[in-house]
């Protein structure tokens, strides 16, 4: 039986969802059978399409909603959420909660 799961993730690395993380995200998503959509507002795109992901233009702090539908939806959405929490495994990115990142950001721009 297929499930539909929805979760909100936040882009937490300074450069946003650029080419490299988008590539990794697609590779992750394609490991699952589930249909995975990601987006914000009314605009959702196929999480297995790198070009679509890039055109989201998701910068630091962008909230995205992820929907997974399929037998492995739960695994899929967990993996993706973790990937966002880890700052896309970018080199030099200190694993940090999104609150902390926002705080650092506001001090640096002051």
């Amino acid at each position: 039986m297929s499930k539909v799961l929805r979760r909100t993730v936040v882009v937490s690395n300074p450069q946003g969802l650029h080419a490299r993380p988008a590539d990794l995200l697609v590779r992750m998503a394609t490991q699952f059978e589930s249909n995975i959509l990601i987006g914000r507002g009314g605009e959702t795109v196929d999480c297995k399409s790198i070009l679509s992901l890039l055109t989201l233009g998701a910068a630091l702090g962008t909230e995205l909603s992820v929907t997974a539908e399929g037998d492995d939806a739960e695994n899929a959405i967990d993996s993706i959420e973790q990937f966002f929490l880890r700052g896309f495994d970018e080199p030099g990115f200190e694993a940090a909660g999104s609150d902390e990142v926002t705080e650092t950001d506001s001090t640096s721009s002051a």
Binding site: A19, R20, A22, D23, V26, R27, V45, D46, K48, S49, I50, L51, S52, P91
Partner: peptide, 18 residues
């Protein structure tokens, strides 16, 4: 890391939507 530029290009080339 630099080689990954082309990994991303490959991914674009095989993009299912494209």
């Amino acid at each position: 890391h630099t080689g990954d530029i082309f990994a991303a290009q490959l991914q674009m080339l095989h993009d299912p939507r494209l």
